[in-house]
């Protein structure tokens, strides 16, 4: 019973675990991407760069100021969110009135600039980040070793996803957001400060990306290219899931992470392109995505 389809169970379980971790990162990032798209009508190409920024801020807090993982996990998203808020207010906002392609190109440029800047200052090589001592151990399940930090990542990522879902579907602020996605000028005519709401949304979603980066720091090394690789997969996730539902986006992200992990076991060479192949299949069968509505 230690082999499943000729693969050692420990390897299989390990890859599924890794897939779940990646999947929860995909879920956190594509969630933010989808909310930004719904509210601002902007495809945020800088999302990967903000994820990278979250990782780097956490790393810098630790290396330069000696601020550890736990405060870093709180401070990094706040800093990233503030940067997002400022850039939305000063720059992005002026592009809502022109063709959507321009805001896309703008965030694309921002992604290039951020990645280029960090590569210039810190070099391309990854920077290791230590696991927090509290989560350094793990459990031996007999067939595999389960590192505590990875369990923590999955649990907290799912909790944050759930919290975001709850905030949007069940609170008053969430009702403003949903209504503003449908008809922003009417919501504003009811007395809600919609421009501020947009800034808040962008800051929150970008902060979510920063949070993901901070979570990822101890698992993957922190490097300037870490965002770009993820970003394109996130796009595929969003195309596959469609932007219609929050739960759909979260589930698609998780599922794709696991599927990707499984291909690493059975077809290692195909693992990098699995997500894209799934995307092509979904596009052929359901052009609007699995949970999508045409907009």
């Amino acid at each position: 019973m230690t082999e499943i389809f000729g693969v050692p169970a420990a390897v299989l379980a390990g890859q599924i675990l890794l897939g779940l971790i990646n999947g929860s990162f995909y879920a956190l990032l594509s969630l933010g991407l989808a909310i930004i798209f719904g509210m601002l009508n902007v495809i945020n190409f800088a999302h990967g760069a903000f994820y990278m920024l979250g990782g780097f801020v956490t790393w810098m807090l630790f290396s330069y100021l000696g601020i550890g993982y736990w405060p870093g996990l709180l401070i990094a998203p706040v800093i990233v969110g503030l940067i997002g808020a400022v850039s939305e207010r000063l720059l992005l906002r002026h592009l809502y009135r022109v063709d959507h392609l321009y805001s896309l190109l703008f965030t694309f440029g921002a992604a290039l600039a951020l990645e280029g800047l960090f590569r210039y200052v810190f070099g391309a090589a990854g920077k290791p980040y230590p696991q927090p001592a509290e989560l350094s151990g793990g459990y031996n399940l007999g067939f595999m070793f389960l590192p505590l930090y990875r369990i923590w990542v999955i649990v907290i990522a799912l909790a944050v996803c759930f919290g975001t879902w709850y905030a949007i579907e069940r609170t008053r602020l969430g009702a403003y957001l949903r209504a503003a996605t449908e008809n922003p000028s009417l919501v504003q005519a009811f007395g809600v400060n919609v421009p501020f709401l947009l800034t808040l949304t962008y800051a929150f979603c970008v902060g979510l990306a920063g949070f993901t980066g901070a979570l990822a720091a101890p698992i993957y090394q922190v490097s300037p290219g870490m965002g770009a690789n993820f970003l394109i997969i996130i796009f595929a996730v969003v195309v596959i899931g469609g932007m219609g539902s929050i739960v759909g986006t979260i589930l698609t992200g998780l599922a794709l992470g696991v599927v990707e992990g499984l291909t690493k076991v059975f077809f290692p060479t195909a693992s990098a392109i699995t997500v894209f192949i799934i995307m092509i299949l979904v596009l052929m069968v359901r052009p609007n995505g699995l949970f999508g509505r045409e907009r």
């Binding site: 720059l91 592009l95 703008f106 694309f108 921002a110 280029g116």
Partner: peptide
Amino acid sequence: LPITFIIGVIFMVCVMLFR
């Protein structure tokens, strides 16, 4: 100089000011 950074900044400036 960091070329990618400069390219990215030119991109942003172009989109904001010289569409």
